[in-house]
């Protein structure tokens, strides 16, 4: 177990390095002189030269990369040209809405997926099973922003139950906070709920045909007990492996959903920075999200070994 964790940690280094190279290259992908893109066409030669010096664009590329990555490791992503503040500060100011939104939609997806997946597996081809199928197929096909707009149309415009967009901090007014977050969380989590439910269903179907489940039934245990205690526990393991992918989808989706519901989070900031051509912010956000994703994957991999002792990954 310990050797596995060490090995997994060492594997992290090349991946993070490549993540760094990709994020670094983004600014260097800008065709032509990046200072033109950053300062606009009207900037004087002096202004450009000053910015080149400030950004270190006159140094050789490897030197630039080393400088940049050592700063990035210390969470220094440079300054936002538009906001006139450090990128890290700008991002941390907007972490709360994005983090909470991702958390709510993940919880919502799991809360929907497990019961519906289990019911569908226990009664295959029933009405519930078919409904789940329709939900997961349409969930995979509907764009998050369009689902969000349909929700706004129904719950905000027609029924007037919920606000159509905006954000209230959880510390300011928890009740209002949840009223503002219900629709975004549903819009973001719906497609993942469908995917997870399908996985739970197929994992449950596998498990329900196992000998130990038959034995459990044979010794007269009630169905509810067999399904929850014997089957579900084993069926959650395969579902756990996709949580990392689901989280990546959700984190990416926050960009779109925050724009739909006008939530002042990191995703909204990234989109605004693209229109303002504020590349430092885009680069910093991309790097930060990718790093979070890599770390979450690591934790899930370790958790996976912990939950399922049969897996030893050949390391010990």
């Amino acid at each position: 177990m310990f050797a596995y964790i060490i090995r997994r940690l060492l594997l992290l280094i090349p991946v993070l390095l490549i993540v760094g190279v990709i994020a670094f290259m983004l600014i260097h992908l800008i065709p032509g002189d990046p200072t033109t893109a950053l300062l606009g066409r009207d900037a004087t030669l002096e202004q450009r030269e000053a910015l080149r010096d400030q950004m270190g664009l006159n140094d050789p590329l490897p030197v630039q990369f080393m400088n940049w990555i050592t700063d990035a490791v210390r969470l220094d992503f440079g300054d936002s040209l538009f906001l006139r503040m450090p990128v890290t500060e700008a991002l941390f100011d907007r972490v709360q809405p994005t983090g909470l939104l991702t958390l709510y939609s993940l919880s919502l997806a799991i809360l929907i997926a497990i019961p519906s997946g289990v019911i569908a597996a226990v009664r295959p081809n029933s009405l519930a099973d078919r409904l789940l199928m329709v939900m997961s197929i349409s969930g995979a096909a509907i764009p998050g922003f369009f689902f969000g707009i349909l929700l706004i149309l129904l719950f905000a415009v027609v029924l007037g139950w919920l606000p159509s967009g905006g954000y209230v901090g959880i510390g300011d007014d928890p009740v209002q906070h949840f009223r503002y977050m219900v629709m975004p969380a549903l819009a973001l989590g719906f497609s993942s709920a469908g995917l997870l439910a399908r996985l739970v269903r197929s994992a449950m179907l596998d498990v329900l045909h196992q000998d130990y489940v038959r034995t459990a039934y044979a010794k007269g245990l009630p169905e509810r007990h067999v399904v929850v205690k014997h089957a579900l526990r084993n069926a959650t393991i395969p579902a756990l492996t996709v949580i990392g992918t689901v989280l990546a989808t959700l984190l990416g989706g926050t960009v779109v959903i925050e724009t739909v519901f006008n939530i002042p989070g990191m995703g909204r900031l990234v989109v605004q920075s693209v229109t303002r051509r504020d590349f430092q912010v885009v680069q910093g956000a991309v790097l930060m999200v990718a790093t979070i994703e890599v770390l979450v994957m690591l934790i899930l991999d370790i958790l996976y070994v912990y939950v399922d002792p049969r897996i030893r990954y050949g390391s010990d």
Binding site: V15, L17, I18, L251
Partner: peptide
């Protein structure tokens, strides 16, 4: 490892970043 690195970025975010650079 390169594939792992690319996959660490949520797809839409990577696309946005590339679009920001290219226009």
């Amino acid at each position: 490892r390169v594939i792992d690195g690319l996959e660490a970025f949520p797809g839409i975010l990577l696309a946005i970043a590339i679009m920001a650079a290219f226009g």
